[in-house]
Design a protein around this nucleic acid. Structure first.
Length: 502
RNA sequence: GGGCCGUUAGCUCAAUUGGUAGAGCUGCGGACUUUUAAUCCGUAGGUUCUGGGUUCGAGCCCCAGGCGGCCCA
C-alpha cells in the first residue's frame, strides 16, 4: 500500500495533529480502565425503530420511555452544560442524542466533550424526547464509546474528490448518502432480475470463472496459473459457452449473474472486471428474448424505483415504459446516409461514405466492421430512448444464426440506451458443423496474431454435436443496467472498482 | 497508444508578472442548558505528488516520471 513511514500508534509523533490526538484519546481511555472497542453493548432499538415509533411526537415532549441506541457521530454541537450529537445508523437513519449536565452528571459530560470526535461510534441510553425545536432525541442517562475512530472524517458539506470516493469507498459511504443508495439500488436491481427469472421458470447456475480455454466473446483474457495442475488458466470473458452446454444438457431456461474479466482499460462505460447477466431459453428467438429483456429492465425499474420513468443523476427523467423502438442496422444506416446500404454494398462504397463524413476507418476493416462503424457514428451515438438495433452483418457475429429470410445478416440485436450498449441478444447458432467452421476461422485469426480471437473449444463443439435445441440468448451488463437506470458512470455503480495502486 | 487539464493543510479549494504559501470547514484552548453545517473569542496545522534543471530567488518556468480526469484512436 504505502510508503508511509511506520508509525508508533501510541504516540504517532509523525502523524498529522488530528490523527495523533485521536490515538491519544484511545490510549487515555485504555489507561483509565475504559474500552474504546467494547465487544458488546446493550442496544435495545435501532434508530429507525425509534423514528418509526415516535414519528408524531409534539414539540418538547418527554415520553418516559427508556431506550439504548448506537450510532456513528455525524455532527457535534456542544454547549457548556448541554451537548447535541447527530447519530447515524448503518441504514442511514439519523437521530439526535442530547447529553445534559442534569441527566448524565458532570464527569460523564466532561468525558463526552473530551473523548468523542466526529466519526466515533457511541452508545447512548436514555429517554425518548423531543427537543424544544421538535427534534426527536434521546436524552442520555449514560453514554459509552462503542468504537473510537482514529481518522478524521472529511468535511461533510463538500464533495470528496472523485478519486478519493473510489479509492476509499468506505469513506464515501460514510459521508455521502447517494453512495449508499447506489449500493442498495444495485442490490435491488439484481434481486429484481432474479425474481423476474424465477417467475418465468429459469434456473440460476454458476459456471466456471477459472477456465482452461476462454471463449464466448472477442476480448483479451487475464491469464493465471494453477500450480497443482501446472497449466495456465484464463479468467472468463463470458459465461456463454458453459451456459450453452447447460441448454444441451436439458437445462432449457438458464441464467447466470456473475463477474467477467477482460484485459482492457477502463473509461466511463468500461471496467476490466464487470458484472454480467446472461440467459438462454430453448425455443426462444431473438424476437422473443427482446420482449423478455425489455420486461426485465422495466420490472427492475419498477421494483427499485417504483416507476418506469426513472430520475437520473442529472435530474432528468428517463422513460423505459411501454414498447421500445426497433430498427434494423442496414435500414437505419441507409436512412442516415440517404442512400441504400445492404449486405451486398461493396467495401469501396462504404469507405467512400466514411470518407465523406470525415470518419477515419482502419483500412483492414471489411464490410461488417465498416457497416458497424458507420452505424455507430451516424445512428448509434444519437439514440437516446431504449432502442433495439437488429440484424447485424454476419461477418462480425460468428456465434449467431443467419437470418431466416434476409440474406447476409445475423439474427442479432443490440439494445441501446442513452447512446451506450446495454444488452445483446441472438437466435443462437446451434449447427455444430457451421459452428466449427466459424470457430476454425476465429482460430486462424488467433494464429495470425489477433489476441482477441476466439479459441477452438473442442469440448464445446462436442456438446453441440449432441444436439442443442433452437435457443435465444441474451447478455446484459449489470453495471450498465445500473448506469441506465441512474445516469451514473460505471465506476459509481461498482462498489470497489479496479484502480492503480497508490 | 496520442493530446489537453489537474495534483497545494485532515477535507474542499485560493495564491497577481517568478519575490514571506492563504481561506472555509475540521482540529486544539476557552465561553455558552435547546443546537441542526450552532454561535462567539483565541490558536495550531505545509516534503506545494516525486526527481532533476534554470534563477539571487520556483507552488508558478524547463525536463523526466507517478497518480487522476477529459477527449481522441
Amino acid at each position: 500500500m504505502s510508503d508511509e513511514q511506520p508509525t508508533d500508534l501510541t504516540t504517532g509523533d509523525d502523524l498529522p495533529e488530528q490523527m495523533r490526538i485521536r490515538r491519544e484519546k484511545r490510549a487515555r481511555l485504555l489507561a483509565e480502565g475504559g474500552d474504546p472497542y467494547p465487544v458488546e453493548l446493550p442496544r435495545t432499538h435501532s434508530l429507525a425503530e425509534i423514528r418509526e415509533t415516535y414519528s408524531d411526537l409534539p414539540v418538547d415532549t418527554a415520553t418516559g420511555v427508556k431506550v439504548a441506541v448506537t450510532g456513528r457521530v455525524m455532527f457535534l454541537r456542544n454547549t457548556g452544560k448541554l451537548c447535541f450529537a447527530t447519530l447515524r445508523d448503518g441504514d442511514g437513519t439519523e437521530l439526535q442524542a442530547m447529553l445534559s449536565l442534569n441527566n448524565v452528571g458532570a464527569d460523564p459530560l466532561a468525558a463526552w466533550k473530551s473523548d468523542v470526535d466526529l466519526g466515533d461510534h457511541v452508545f447512548v441510553s436514555g429517554e425518548v424526547i423531543t427537543s424544544r425545536r421538535g427534534e426527536l432525541s434521546i436524552l442520555a442517562d449514560e453514554w459509552r464509546m462503542a468504537a473510537k475512530s482514529l481518522r478524521p472524517l472529511p468535511v461533510a458539506h463538500k464533495a470528496l474528490s472523485e478519486e478519493t470516493r473510489i479509492r476509499q469507498r468506505y469513506v464515501d459511504l460514510i459521508v455521502r448518502g447517494q453512495a449508499r443508495d447506489v449500493v442498495r439500488n444495485r442490490a435491488g436491481v439484481v434481486r429484481s432480475l432474479r425474481d423476474s427469472f424465477h417467475r418465468r421458470g429459469f434456473i440460476e447456475v454458476e459456471t466456471p470463472i477459472l477456465q482452461t480455454m476462454h471463449g464466448g466473446a472477442t476480448a483479451r483474457p487475464f491469464v493465471t496459473h494453477s500450480n497443482a495442475m501446472d497449466v495456465d488458466l484464463y479468467l472468463r470473458i463470458a459465461p456463454e459457452l458453459f451456459l450453452k452446454r447447460c441448454v444441451v444438457g436439458g437445462l432449457e431456461k438458464v441464467f447466470e449473474i456473475n463477474r467477467n474479466f477482460r484485459n482492457e482499460g477502463s473509461d466511463s462505460s468500461h471496467s476490466p472486471e464487470f458484472a454480467m447477466l446472461e440467459y438462454y431459453e430453448a425455443y426462444a428467438t431473438y424476437d422473443t428474448v427482446a420482449v423478455t429483456t425489455r420486461q426485465l429492465v422495466q420490472e427492475a425499474a419498477e421494483a427499485v424505483f417504483g416507476t418506469q420513468v426513472v430520475t437520473l443523476a442529472d435530474g432528468s427523467e428517463y422513460d423505459v415504459s411501454g414498447d421500445w423502438t426497433a430498427l434494423t442496422m442496414y435500414g437505419s444506416l441507409s436512412d442516415a446516409l440517404g442512400e441504400e446500404v445492404t449486405p451486398e454494398t461493396s467495401v469501396e462504397v462504404l469507405r467512400k461514405h466514411a470518407a465523406a463524413r470525415e470518419l477515419e476507418v482502419d483500412p483492414k476493416h471489411g464490410h461488417g466492421k465498416l457497416v458497424e462503424e458507420l452505424w455507430e457514428h451516424l445512428v448509434g451515438d444519437h439514440l437516446h430512448a431504449p432502442t433495439f438495433v437488429r440484424d447485424f452483418p454476419v461477418e462480425t457475429s460468428p456465434l449467431t444464426r443467419q437470418h431466416r429470410s434476409v440474406p447476409g445478416v445475423a439474427e442479432k440485436w443490440d439494445l441501446y440506451i442513452r447512446g451506450f450498449e446495454l444488452a445483446t441478444g441472438y437466435s443462437e447458432l446451434v449447427d455444430p458443423v457451421v459452428e466449427r467452421e466459424r470457430l476454425e476461422d476465429q482460430a486462424r485469426h488467433g494464429a495470425a496474431g489477433d489476441d482477441e480471437a476466439m479459441r477452438l473449444d473442442e469440448d464445446f463443439l462436442r456438446a453441440l454435436e449432441y444436439g442443442m435445441p433452437p435457443t435465444g440468448g441474451v447478455g446484459m451488463g449489470i453495471d450498465r443496467l445500473l448506469m441506465a437506470l441512474t445516469g451514473l458512470g460505471i465506476r459509481e455503480t461498482i462498489l470497489f472498482p479496479l484502480v492503480r495502486p497508490e
